[in-house]
Amino acid sequence: MSTPGIKPRPAATPIDILPTDAARLYTHIHPALLLSLYALRFNAIVADPVPALLQTLIPLSALQIAYVTVCLPPTAGSGSSTPAVPKAAKKRASAAKTATGSNTVKIVPALLSLILSLFAITPLTGITLILFGAPITTHFAHTFLAAAHIAILAFLPLVYVLGVDGERWREVVGLLLPVDEVVGGMVGTLVGAWAGAVPIPLDWDREWQKWPVTIVTGAYLGYALGKLAGGLVFKGRKIMFD
């Protein structure tokens, strides 16, 4: 891919939320809203997962789109005029102006992120669920709806801030990006969904043990925790393997 002569790309930096009051406020309200939405829908999802999960996708998408447009800087590469990382205090005012002033403009990359998450990432997530042991011959709707929820939770914000830059996405998969609330949310969602499989085999005979309720529950809880931890506690750190 790379040919000699091209300068090495600058290392990725953690993403700061937009320097507006709305962003600073909404970034904390957002996980609470998401969890409330899920708590509200929980009984319906347990009762009949497929239609309930499908319907819940709409408010989930709306909340995520609201979150990214209000709080996050859109990708530099997607044609938007907003710089990915507002640097100096001098620039901050203008950046804030752009951020607040062009909310309608930012809807477009947000919608594109949603479409990418739904149609590119959801199938991959669904296949991953099957590889982890989800039913391979039945329950397709269940599995892929769970995958859609995971994709919108974990990856919609990432698509919004990173765009479709291949090298950045290699860093996403390799967990090489510095931790921030977007990366934290992604890792949290995936770990939460992973841990959500734990109660499934137990012989408690509870309705909520049915596929894929626990996975989706784990994903929502994991997203909220991961976003919080990534944004506040571990911000700027690197994930080390060795």
Binding site: L131, V173, P201
Partner: peptide
Amino acid sequence: SFTIWEDEILLHFLTTFGVLMAISSFR
């Protein structure tokens, strides 16, 4: 329950190792 479903748990864990190895490969 976990003893009964050991085969599925092992699948889950092995895939976990596989995914971690894939992530590590990307690095």
